[in-house]
Design a protein around this nucleic acid. Sequence first.
DNA 1: CTGAAAGCGCTTACAG
DNA 2: CTGAAAGCGCTTACAG
Lengths: 355, 355
Amino acid sequence: MASITEVARLAGVSTATASRVVSASAYPVSAATRARVLEAARTLDYVPNALARGLLKSRVPVVAVIVHDITDPYFAEVVRGVEDAASAAGYLVITCSSERNAERERSYIRLLRSMRAAAVVFAGSGLDDPALNEEMDRHLAAMQADGAAVVHLSPYAGGSPEVSVDNAAGIAAMVAELVALGHRRIAFLAGPRSLFVARERLAGYRRGLEAAGIPFDEAIVVRTSFDADGGALGVDTLLASGAPFTAVCCANDLLAFGALQRLAALGIAVPGAVSVAGFDDIPTAALTAPSLSTVRLPLREMGRRGFRHADRLLAGDVPAAEIMPTQVMLRGSTAAPPAADAPRAPHAADAAGVA
Amino acid sequence: MASITEVARLAGVSTATASRVVSASAYPVSAATRARVLEAARTLDYVPNALARGLLKSRVPVVAVIVHDITDPYFAEVVRGVEDAASAAGYLVITCSSERNAERERSYIRLLRSMRAAAVVFAGSGLDDPALNEEMDRHLAAMQADGAAVVHLSPYAGGSPEVSVDNAAGIAAMVAELVALGHRRIAFLAGPRSLFVARERLAGYRRGLEAAGIPFDEAIVVRTSFDADGGALGVDTLLASGAPFTAVCCANDLLAFGALQRLAALGIAVPGAVSVAGFDDIPTAALTAPSLSTVRLPLREMGRRGFRHADRLLAGDVPAAEIMPTQVMLRGSTAAPPAADAPRAPHAADAAGVA
DNA sequence: CTGAAAGCGCTTACAG
DNA sequence: CTGAAAGCGCTTACAG
């Protein structure tokens, strides 16, 4: 692979001059010289060595995105958004699936530091785990001290995210829609207790209930993992408790998928007997049967803005935090409760028997 | 950030010695010296500069995965597999969503070359586009000439993939299952005509039919894009044609999702009136209602092996190509045809009217 | 077993 | 407008 030395030699100029033209520096170079260098670069198929350049700048045009799991459609969307904005700016994106595992995060951050990645975008929410967070902070401080940009797209221990969405308002809006449909016994599948974002969403549920004058009932709030298994388990738990409900509001779409499936397996009609609502609007939400009513988060756009925020940070700016809008998407999984005047648990006894 | 020079100074040794211990070189260093260097590295929180090292080796521990779209669950799984194996080996993974767009691929390959990525894994199938392929080959040849490893996980213009699956056999196995269920009019949603992998899958469909002694009927084969929209469109096309069918075999799960949804919207029962089968077994395939019968591809494992293949290539080995097994997963979307003795198009006229 | 020195491919004061 | 030279942080013959 040709180096700038060879380009300079072929063009008959110094490497300084060659560098100035191929790196699009603002330094003045005569048009004739410039043309000769460009010509030489072309004939040698010259591709600058990002490592050599990075060694000087102590920074390489690479952004890392830390996700819980790239296989989760929520994160895949965010990564895609980061990628779109990043590649437009000549950056490459590194994907790190941390599994919320301290050891994995630690080793990723170390690799990223060794690579002199220019920026790190944390796509997922932080966990309320003091030990993990203390260690994370040390690494982050080191990266920032090196001049790397750090951006969060979800709440975390260190404070509020630079680019995000109002999770609580989003859930509250969905609760309001369910109430408007006639529901008053609205169960909530809350996700993991220690995940900051799950906490915000639970707060949104309470706020929505409050706005409608409906008392909060701990008996119909279930905390499970943030995935489809958690949704199925949540339905089982709700049914087993015997507490009545006509709608299940879920803290994310995966939970809703699991709930939908479990309900179908139990022969409980959606939305005939129970309504189900999700949150996030991942691409497949429109493909379930019935299609899922949910709250749309501008996931891809959050990724794009996350990159741009980092890019501005790198340029020395201090951009303001951004909060993006959410939007309720009413589809096939929600409807009025079966008997608006006397809401009861749908086949509670039968279903529990089936389960 | 501390450099090796500072570590060496603190330990009271030369940078050569310090380098030998921190880089785990095989070069002999006395135990006492080694301990002092390690201690210095620890107190300075020394993280080696991968760029400086990469500049010498002209290779950095980074693998790139070229996918069509990271947002497609098929690719997210493969990327995750690559990531798991790569991070275990101290590599970082770069994600490139090419959108099968020549310009995007070109610019990615250029960035990757400039970064001296050690390996490139092509997760998706090639397109039968001579112009694009000719250009791709040039870049790849340049990367390989630089010593980078290149691995394909799906068929492409240049030959057969290093790590893959027998697509044709997989589809043929699914056709055999449908036949065993009593179907003889099995429609096929084939995906894009120019994608090599779609061609293999179509060949598998023909082979499956042939094995069952069922004549191939072009009238019930539809070619569309490889996504849910394509599946919905495929169902409409099939219904509009008036040709009878009792099952729809799809070349991938996304197509099947679209078909399932369209069929539900038209009020055509699955699997009561028509059976639907997918291919790939992406994670959400088990979550649709009815759950999707499909063919499981070991996506994550393909990713892992893809990395390991690249790693071996980098080590100078010439590993043999690997073909991994597929497995038919029969779930809720397939059953015996409605009237095994007289298969007809389900509500063909009505449905077409609805559409 | 240890160290001095060259060199990987760039960019950037600095001098002209 | 152009170029000689230093230096970014490593590793590796080479000499001892």
